[in-house]
Design a protein around this nucleic acid. Structure first.
Lengths: 124, 124
DNA sequence: ATACTTAGTATGGAAAACGATACCATTATT
DNA sequence: AATAATGGTATCGTTTTCCATACTAAGTAT
């Protein structure tokens, strides 16, 4: 019973001191940028598409409100994860794609997807 | 402009059809279990501790409300991520630890931590 | 007797997230 | 002249999430 308390911690980086407060925890920090109901899904779709238009995203996430989609895109843009390119046409055309920093988030998406495919069913 | 649309998608598993709706997306599914403001942090702390007591968790996450902590722990328990062991003592003693399935979530935590350490600063 | 400890629960309220609806400008189409 | 398409914004309401406060039971220490 005592010996298995060591096993599952291998490979996890322990914090120097026990500081998990809001401003100092790596997990919390990362989630400030990519947390929430829609962000990771949005990042995944834009990655799959390479370049996405607004209406395309709206169609694929068919249960998101348009206002919510706009807000999420603005925040991802503000945080340097995606970039927005608007063309001076009519009707308007706007394209979204991942920035270089946004691309560095793909391993997070992938490991989450892998976990779902391999282990999530065991939780039921 | 066209050629760089391919690069960043390497290694990402594309969905068969463009189905990102609420019930069918792997990312969304995984986040149903470990999403939210506190879950991943909780999983990380319990992993660091190997075994955590309630008051210990409360102290380390000093800005979480006690009621919220209880709810998060109950949900993680319900979803098979942690297990709860209460001792018939007084004052009560309750211990939380990761289940085997909970342990499979650690790579998710790790990759999130790594991203924060390596790339998050670039978003500023 | 009183105070302290742990791991909660109960209640009420505030804040954040999210959604539905209506509206807009510009151009092309019918 | 009316309609449709795109990518929004503005407003308001709901739902979800979260927090603050008060309270509890049982044993231990003073």
């Amino acid at each position: 019973m005592e010996n298995d308390t060591i096993i599952h911690n291998q490979g996890l980086t322990k914090p120097e001191k026990d500081d998990y407060s809001t401003n100092n925890c790596a997990v919390t920090n990362a989630l400030k940028i990519m947390g929430g109901k829609w962000k990771m899904l949005l990042i995944k779709i834009i990655a799959d598409d390479c370049v996405s238009r607004f209406g395309e995203l709206k169609r694929k996430m068919d249960d998101i409100a348009q206002t919510t989609l706009t807000i999420q895109l603005r925040e991802l843009e503000r945080d340097g994860i995606i970039c927005r390119k608007a063309y001076a046409e009519s009707p308007p055309r706007v394209e979204y794609k991942l920035t270089e920093i946004g691309i560095t988030l793909l391993p997070v998406i992938q490991v989450l997807t892998d976990w779902n495919d391999n282990y999530c069913r065991l939780t039921k």
